[in-house]
Amino acid sequence: MAVTTLDQSTALVLIDLQRGIVASPAAAPLSGAEVVGNAVQLADAFRAQGAPVVLVRVSFAPDFSDVVPGRTEHAGFGGVPPEGWDVIVDELSGHPGDIRVTKRNWGAFHGTDLDVQLRRRGITQIVLAGIATSIGVESTARAAHEHGYHVTIATDAVTDMNPEAHRNSLERIFPRLGESGSTEEILELFAKTRG
């Protein structure tokens, strides 16, 4: 479903737009830089209207003692990430009014104060963007839907490490959780809603 409505109480939630993830050369179909460029447009518009911008990052203790336990078929991190890998990219940093959330899971709700931060501000809808579409973004979208938020995905402000997984999220999962639209479509609708 194309984006049709944004509530007056809408927040922008940006997932894992941090140095180590944005810099990945495996991002597809969009590069990390393209996603950040569109996320910056969204963030600037939301900030200009006094709407909340949430910067979510994934991070772990230096010894990885807080990594989610359990058996998986995926090898995990495969070493120690470089210094500063979990720092939000410069293009989105430096705005003291932004809400910052650190997660230890795929999704931004479990084990964080994201829901409390949104509810205290009366937020009823979130616009989601970030990396990776099928992991952090999709997990957050699912939880947002389950928490009763209206969900909108910025389709040109998300990317993945797997183009097939990205496409599956956009075509099969997100339509069941909310609406989707381009950055331009969302900005146009946001301006009408707030104007």
Rank of each mutant, 00 (worst) to 15 (best):
V127F: 02
I15H: 03
A129I: 06
G181V: 14
A26E: 06
H145K: 14
L114S: 10
V58M: 08
T72F: 05
R120Y: 01
A141H: 07
E179K: 09
P69L: 05
D66S: 07
E83Y: 07
R167W: 13
V58R: 05
L177A: 04
G32R: 13
S182P: 04
G37V: 02
K192E: 08
I99E: 00
R121H: 05
H95V: 12
I126K: 06
S180M: 13
P29E: 10
A61E: 13
G107E: 00
V158Y: 06
T72Q: 03
L12F: 12
E34C: 06
V151F: 03
T112R: 00
V89S: 04
I153G: 00
R19K: 04
R71I: 15
A43S: 13
A39S: 11
D66T: 05
H145N: 14
V67I: 12
G76V: 07
S31M: 05
F46D: 06
G136R: 00
F174T: 14
Q18L: 01
G181M: 13
S139T: 09
A28T: 15
D63N: 06
T124E: 11
F77R: 02
V89H: 03
G111P: 11
T140W: 05
V127P: 02
A154I: 02
L189K: 15
V67D: 09
P52M: 03
I131A: 01
D86R: 04
E138G: 08
R194C: 10
T183S: 10
T124L: 04
R57G: 02
A11K: 06
R194S: 12
A129S: 14
H74V: 10
G111L: 15
P52D: 07
R71M: 15
V137N: 09
H166R: 08
N162F: 08
D160S: 14
E146Y: 06
G136I: 00
T193L: 01
T102A: 04
E164Y: 09
D113F: 03
S65Y: 12
D156I: 10
R142I: 14
E83N: 08
A129L: 04
G178C: 07
Q49Y: 10
S139E: 01
V56C: 08
N38V: 14
V54K: 09
P62Q: 09
W85D: 01
W106K: 13
A48R: 15
S31Q: 12
E184G: 13
L14S: 06
P163E: 07
